[in-house]
Amino acid sequence: MDKYQVLRDTGTNAPNYDLETEDIINWLSKWDAQYGISIDNVEEDALDIFFLNLPEDLTELAIDIYKLCPDTIDQHFGCIGDLLEEMEASEQDIPENFQEFVKDIDFNDENYGFELLKRSLTLNKSVGLWWD
């Protein structure tokens, strides 16, 4: 069975980024050829990708992920600095594993979200994509 049929059946798309189902499948097919992927949790506007192999330098992949789904940075990894500030301001405990995840990240660098995406890929070998 075609691993992408579930996207067709679900109608996974990102109209706010002018991406139709086949556009998303083209990106995923490219990554599958390069790294090997599996997909899960497919919805109309979201899915999870699991990478079987990752390159040593994740920069190109992180940029590709951003091109396909800007929300991975703009609404997630690129907002973690603000989240930490809010947690500290409200005197919330920051979990140890989260502290370790952000250790040595320069939140003044406008590209810190890409560094966190790359760290997450290294740790989890996966990324969630969503388009809203």
Rank of each mutant, 00 (worst) to 15 (best):
N16S: 14
E22S: 01
I65R: 02
S38N: 09
N53A: 09
I49E: 01
N26E: 15
N53R: 11
E56A: 10
L19T: 03
I37M: 06
D57R: 04
E20L: 08
A14W: 13
K67D: 13
I24F: 06
D32V: 10
K3T: 09
L47P: 01
I65P: 06
D32Q: 06
Y66A: 09
W31G: 02
E22M: 04
D32I: 08
Y17E: 11
F51R: 04
Y17G: 04
L47R: 05
G36F: 00
P55D: 06
G36W: 02
K3D: 02
E44A: 13
A62V: 02
P15T: 10
I49Q: 03
E44S: 13
L28W: 10
S29R: 14
T10P: 01
I37N: 05
S29V: 06
V42L: 03
I24Q: 00
A62E: 01
D48M: 11
D23E: 09
L28I: 11
T12A: 12
S38D: 07
L7G: 12
D45W: 01
Y17M: 08
D18L: 14
E44V: 12
T59Y: 11
Q34N: 10
Y17D: 07
W31C: 00
D23Q: 02
D57T: 01
I65A: 01
N13D: 08
L61T: 01
G11D: 06
V6T: 15
F50V: 14
Y35W: 09
L54H: 03
T59I: 01
D64R: 00
E56F: 00
D18E: 14
E56W: 07
I65V: 12
S29Q: 15
G36K: 05
I65N: 00
T10W: 02
I63Y: 08
F51N: 06
T10S: 08
L58F: 05
E22Y: 03
A14P: 01
N41G: 10
T21C: 12
L54W: 06
A33Q: 12
V6K: 15
K30C: 13
N13V: 03
D64H: 04
D45C: 11
L61Y: 01
L19D: 02
G36L: 06
P55T: 07
V6F: 04
D9P: 14
T10E: 14
S29K: 15
S38F: 05
L52I: 12
P55M: 09
D48E: 12
Y35M: 05
N53W: 04
D9N: 15
T12E: 04
K67F: 12
E56T: 10
K3Y: 11
E22Q: 13
D40E: 12
W27F: 15
N26V: 14
N13W: 02
D57I: 05
L54F: 00
N41C: 10
I49K: 07
E43Y: 13
D32G: 10
A46K: 14
S29G: 07
I65Q: 00
Y66I: 07
K30H: 12
L58G: 01
N53S: 13
K3L: 15
L19G: 00
D57F: 06
D64W: 04
D57G: 02
